[in-house]
Every structure is written in C-alpha cells, then in structure tokens.
C-alpha cells in the first residue's frame, strides 16, 4: 500500500484519480476499518492519500459573511484549542471535547467525522443546529451545499468520486442565548454516542424562545430533527414544564433502533429527557 502526501490540490486530485486510491484524513475510522478488512482477507486500497500536507485544508478563518471557515483537515484538538471556535461555536466545542479521547482528537479531523457520516458522529448534531454547510472540491471545481443535504444516510454522503471536503462553514451561534450539547455514551471517553442532543434557543427580551433548533444523534440513520418539538418551544420560556411538553413530542416521534449499546426504548426516553437539561442551564 502506498501512502502519498500531496502538497497542492491538483496533485491531490491526480493521486485520487488512480484506481484503488482512498483519502486518509486523520485515519481514526479508516485505519480501524482497514485492519478489519485485512483480518478478514478483504481487499484494501492500493494507495492512501493524506490530506495533512495541504495547508489550505487546515485552520480556522472568518468568511466575508461572518461565518467561520473550518478547514476540513483541522484536527478536533486543533479546533478545540481555537478561541473563535470556543467563543462562537460553543455547541461544537462541547461536542469536540467529548469526542473519542485525547489521541483520537489529536488525529481525527472535522472533515473525516462528516465523511464517515456515522449516525453517532459527534460533530454532526451541533453542525446541523448551527446551519453549517460544506465546501467540496474536485478536479472539476468547487461547490457548496448544506450539511443537511450532504449526508444522505449512514456512511453515505454526496461526495462525488475524486471529490473531497475542503471546509465546513459554520455561522456563529452568538445570537442564541441557550446553547447546549450533551452526549450520552456508555462511558466517559472513547464511547460511541447512544443518544446526543445539540440545542440552540434564541430568546426575546422576555426570555421566550423565538427560534429553537434541536438535533439528535444516534437515534436515526442520520442526524434527527424534530420540527414539532422545536415548534412546541416557540413563544415559551425554557421552563421544565415547557420542556417536558416538547420532550413528550420527541418521545412520540423519534424512532430509534435497538443495538448493542442501548435499546430503542432507552433511546426514545433519553432523547426526550435530554431536553429537560435545558431547564438547569
């Protein structure tokens, strides 16, 4: 297996055009899968093309429209250490702080987390409530699309052959007074989310919600939104009573599955319960 480290995008696209080439971002998902493939005698890529030699894919910058541009090959630890991410995207920072473990955060990248498109991907619910979009590039050019459109199913995205994610564009959440992320895993580190919730509430002067954005991880094939629960919170102060009403809507609508980590019943219950935490913020 060849491992290539292109320094320029054209070089990268040329490398990816070779048959059997695969993108290697942080490798925290890919290498685990390759090991399993090797162990089972399955075919593995002929070359891995690293992204970390491309400076333009790394770092955080301000876009003209005020959104933050997060380089897709920036590591989770790199994002977490960035003051703009901490101040303007606290829901994302909270998710990054809970992702994997220090070594995983030092290797894994934001773009990798999106392209893996796991139903349990820790950065997905916060980026969804932030209304993030992705920038994609290939030899054919650059395009942008909403993250919600980019991820189409578990492990599935709209990434075309030879195309990579170059950046994530995330609008600031500063206008939202209530910002919350919580991940429920089976342990405190190195755990796949059993349920996660990202929540943003914009409040008016009287403390009533004028906008509610809620997104859950690990309760469906992709991030799950619940417009009915969001609507139930509008015009309300985020009191326990109001949140309990919205939680009941969530429990009635969410349709998670059973797996090794938790039953569907537990996930439904907790998907609703997590909303109540907003009352204690």
């Amino acid at each position: 297996m060849n491992v290539l480290t292109p320094r320029e995008l054209p070089e990268l696209f040329a490398a990816l055009a070779a048959p059997g080439a695969r993108v290697l971002a942080g490798g925290t998902d890919l290498l685990v899968r390759l090991r399993a493939d090797l162990r089972q005698g399955r075919k593995v890529p002929s070359s891995l093309v690293r992204l970390d030699g491309l400076e333009e894919l790394c770092g955080v910058a301000r876009e003209p429209d005020g959104a933050l541009r997060l380089g897709a090959a920036t590591t989770h630890a790199g994002l977490l250490a960035h003051p703009l991410v901490r101040v303007e995207l606290p829901v994302l920072a909270a998710a990054l702080a809970d992702l994997g473990s220090p070594p995983i955060r030092n290797m894994g990248t934001l773009g990798g987390n999106l392209c893996t498109a796991s139903p349990a991907g820790d950065t997905l619910p916060p980026l969804m409530v932030l209304g993030a979009s992705v920038e994609l590039a290939s030899a054919a050019g650059v395009r942008r699309m909403a993250l919600a459109d980019f991820i189409t199913g578990p492990g599935r995205t709209r990434l075309a052959p030879g195309e990579i994610v170059t950046a994530v564009l995330a609008p600031s959440a500063r206008e939202f007074a209530v910002r919350h992320f919580e991940k429920v895993g089976r342990r405190s580190a190195l755990a796949v989310a059993v349920v996660s919730l990202a929540a943003l509430l914009r409040l008016d002067a009287r403390g009533k919600a004028v906008e509610a954005r809620l997104a859950w991880g690990s309760v469906g094939p992709t991030v799950w939104r619940c417009p009915e629960a969001e609507a139930a919170l509008l015009g309300q102060r985020p009191t326990l009573t109001a949140l309990k009403r919205a939680a009941a809507v969530v429990r009635a609508r969410v349709q998670p599955i059973d797996d090794l980590r938790a039953s569907a019943a537990y996930r439904s219950e907790v998907a609703g319960n997590l909303l109540l935490r907003l009352a204690a913020l």
Partner: peptide
C-alpha cells in the same frame, strides 16, 4: 474493546 467497554481514567 469498542463494544466490550472497560473503564477509562475518566470513569
């Protein structure tokens, strides 16, 4: 050890 979970330092 991704499905059989033992405690980490944080647990």
């Amino acid at each position: 050890l991704s499905t059989y979970l033992i405690p980490t330092a944080l647990d």
